[in-house]
Design a protein around this nucleic acid. Sequence first.
DNA 1: CTTGGTGTGTGACAATTGTTACATTGGCGG
DNA 2: CCGCCAATGTAACAATTGTCACACACCAAG
Lengths: 213, 213
Amino acid sequence: MSNDTEDLVHQVLGRSEIEPKLAEEILSIGRLKKVKAGGVVISPDSTGNEMPIVLEGLLKVMRQDQAGGEIFLYFLEGGETCAMSITCCIEGKKKAFHVVAEEDSILWMIPMTYIDSWVVKYKSFRKFVFDAYQTRFDEMLNTIDSVVFLKMDQRLYKYLLDKKQASGTFVINKTHEQIANELNTSRVVVSRLLKQLEREGKIEQYRNRIEIM
Amino acid sequence: MSNDTEDLVHQVLGRSEIEPKLAEEILSIGRLKKVKAGGVVISPDSTGNEMPIVLEGLLKVMRQDQAGGEIFLYFLEGGETCAMSITCCIEGKKKAFHVVAEEDSILWMIPMTYIDSWVVKYKSFRKFVFDAYQTRFDEMLNTIDSVVFLKMDQRLYKYLLDKKQASGTFVINKTHEQIANELNTSRVVVSRLLKQLEREGKIEQYRNRIEIM
DNA sequence: CTTGGTGTGTGACAATTGTTACATTGGCGG
DNA sequence: CCGCCAATGTAACAATTGTCACACACCAAG
């Protein structure tokens, strides 16, 4: 393992106030995983019993129904982990979601078998896990709020702002079709509402690209 | 404390495979709380630092937005606990939901201060807490599925079936207005769709009462 | 039995979202 | 430069959901 990687892991774990001793364990037990933008990290039928921690980049968590419909739930940013994989793996249940790299990303994969013992041994790890749950719960509620209380135009704008916030750039490289999929609506509706946002001066549009003002 | 109460707590905790020693601790530390149907257990501004376990009855968890809109998230049945109160209390955050008794209910309230130590000491409690998270996550995803992928008529019917399932009776004592609030729609829409369900022979309607066929 | 308040039924219409169809544009590979 | 394909723009229309108005039914209190 390169020194850079080691530093990166320490740095990310440090931000979550993981104690050095635990950081060493995590470092010695986990493995590095790189994913290209668009690559699948976890799919409903994947068997991987590992919990991913995002070192660099951005993951997105999506929900799918049986009919093929899809909706974006939330992003996982640097330092965050997928709370759902924890419980799913512990329970051995089938995953009801999938995780896709939104950008080229670097992950640190930890076998689930160690989770229980670390929860017992390290207060900082308990905090880490509970924090993960809390944050995910908040994100889910946030998603519910958007879907339930907002009309599509507001939902779309909020989606763009969230994406800007998460990726740290005002440029969004997506087609209307992709956005429509993430909001579970149709391309035509997205085009219509984006045009409206453009007229309101909130965005500018180009081919395969949207810029937030 | 009555012997009946003691038995009830043991019985409910036993179902979750809580080990006897922990059950004794929970019994000695917690307190009984009775709520009448409609009574509020947790509100966004409540300061209570206790985690409720449902001994008998049925609680419902609702989400509210700033504009006063509301939506039903899920029920808490016997043996279940409110995962959100755990993280909220640990984080000391403001609660973004409220919990209301759907039926007359009996709860066992546990001060949050003991949670961390029990998580360390008892494997069965770790399982209990993680199970709670898992179940709540599933319920949230279920709610999202309904809201995102279903039209209002299917959502309504699913709501009625869920309520039947949770309460264990095919009789639902609610007004159209109340149902409309839980689904975040209007009374007129609910009346319209219920009439349709009645014509399809799926339900029968009376004043303040719906019966599921 | 009357009365008043709440709950329900229904029509008419508005607003939002979904669907289909087709025109237009932009960029890449030959 | 041409041709093709993917992406976007737009009109027209359908379906769903939301809103307003008002009639009617039920039930409990007087």
